[in-house]
Every structure is written in C-alpha cells, then in structure tokens.
Computed example of a mutant assay.
Amino acid sequence: MDLMATIENAMTSPFIYLAILALAILDAFLPFLPSESVVIAAAVFAVSGIPSLPLIIVFAALGAFVGDHIGFLIGRLLRRRRPGGRLIRAADRIAPHLHRRGGALIIAGRFVPGGRTAIVTASGATGYPLARFAPFAAIAAVTWAGYSGLIGYLGGAAFESNRMLGLAVGLGLALSITALGELVRYVLRRRRAAIAAG
C-alpha cells in the first residue's frame, strides 16, 4: 500500500474525528503533538465530502476548549504544589499582562507555537478567573479550528486532483502564516526594547 492510500484511509476513517479531538486536547500540555497538521490534513480530504468539514471544525474546537481547561487546571495545581517553582515564577512575571490583557493573550497564544501551553498554564497559575478564561478559551478554540479547517479545505479545493499537493500547500500556508506572525512579534519586541533603551 502506498503512502497516499494510507493517508487517505486514515483521513476518511470515522475515527479521524476522535483523533482530532484527542490531539487537540493533548496539544494543550504536549505542544509537540501535530493537532493543527491533522486538522489541516483532514480538511484537505473534506473537499470530497468525507470527512465532513463542519465535524472536523467542531471536534477540533471542542478538543482545544477542553485541552485549554486541562492546562488551566494544571497551572492551578502547580501553584498549590510548587508555589516557588520556576514555572510559577515565570507565571508571576506574566500575571500583570494577563490580568490587563488576558483575553487578547489567550486568543493570540492559541496561534503561537508553544504559546497556548504557556498562556493557559499561566492563566491557571496566576489565579486568572475561570469565568473570564472560559469565554476567551472558547473564542480561541473556535477561531483556531475554523482557521485550520478552512486553510486545509482551501488547499484541498485548489488542488483537488492532487491531494498530496493540496496537503503540502495547506500545511505550507499554515506554517507561513505562523512564521509571519512570529516575525511581526519579533520586530515589535525589538522596537519596544529599542524605545525603552532609547
């Protein structure tokens, strides 16, 4: 069996929804897991109708939302068990920003590699109110799932006759947008440092 047939079998299996859900949950505290890549890949194949793009987005968003709350809980537990630990000290440095601009950080952190883990854990560790955290986590989860699903779907639609190329374009586009975001963040951070030094 060739690689493309194996990928197609995995992406068109009804178990793909459970895989998306599980990866999106686990990605909150194991950021090396490829949840976004799997959502994009499944969405490339959704062009043919199987799997369903709306279900991909729903399961990805649900997984991201649940995972964010698990990460939040981990932050709370770490605060209780290791109040002077390195992670807690780092969370304390983030706390003023989180309590001032928490919503924006929670949403933006979802799109920064490793940012989701840092922000949701810091939210729990700093005592950020769960009632404020949950709505922003929901917005971040739905936005991320929709973005990932649509990127994959557009890549699949543009290269319907060659799904592997559609998959490569979808993943490449997601990586390019992430890299561009990181570049903008780096430039803004350097500019702020230059102004502060200046």
Rank of each mutant, 00 (worst) to 15 (best):
M1Y: 14
M4W: 14
T6G: 14
E8I: 11
N9T: 15
P14K: 08
F15K: 14
L18V: 15
A19T: 14
L23D: 14
L23C: 12
L23H: 13
D27H: 09
F29M: 13
L30E: 10
P31Y: 06
L33Y: 07
S37Y: 10
S37A: 12
V38Y: 04
I40H: 00
A41C: 09
A46C: 02
G49D: 14
I50S: 04
S52E: 08
L53C: 02
L55E: 14
I57H: 01
V58L: 12
G63R: 04
G67E: 03
I70E: 15
F72N: 07
L73M: 11
R76I: 08
L78C: 10
L78V: 12
R79I: 04
R80I: 03
R82E: 15
G84W: 02
R89W: 00
R89T: 00
P96R: 00
L98G: 01
H99V: 05
R100H: 09
G102D: 14
G102I: 06
G103I: 03
L105R: 12
I106G: 12
F111Y: 09
P113E: 14
I119A: 05
I119N: 07
S123Y: 00
G124I: 07
G124L: 04
A125P: 03
Y128T: 04
P129Y: 12
A137G: 01
A138V: 00
A141Y: 02
Y147S: 01
L150H: 03
I151W: 07
L154P: 07
G155L: 05
A157I: 10
A157Y: 02
A158V: 05
F159L: 09
E160R: 07
E160L: 09
S161A: 10
S161D: 12
M164V: 11
L167M: 13
L167I: 08
L171Y: 04
L171N: 11
I177R: 11
I177D: 03
T178P: 04
L180A: 15
L180G: 15
L180Q: 13
E182N: 11
L183G: 09
L183N: 13
V184L: 04
V184R: 03
L188S: 10
R189G: 13
R190N: 12
A193N: 13
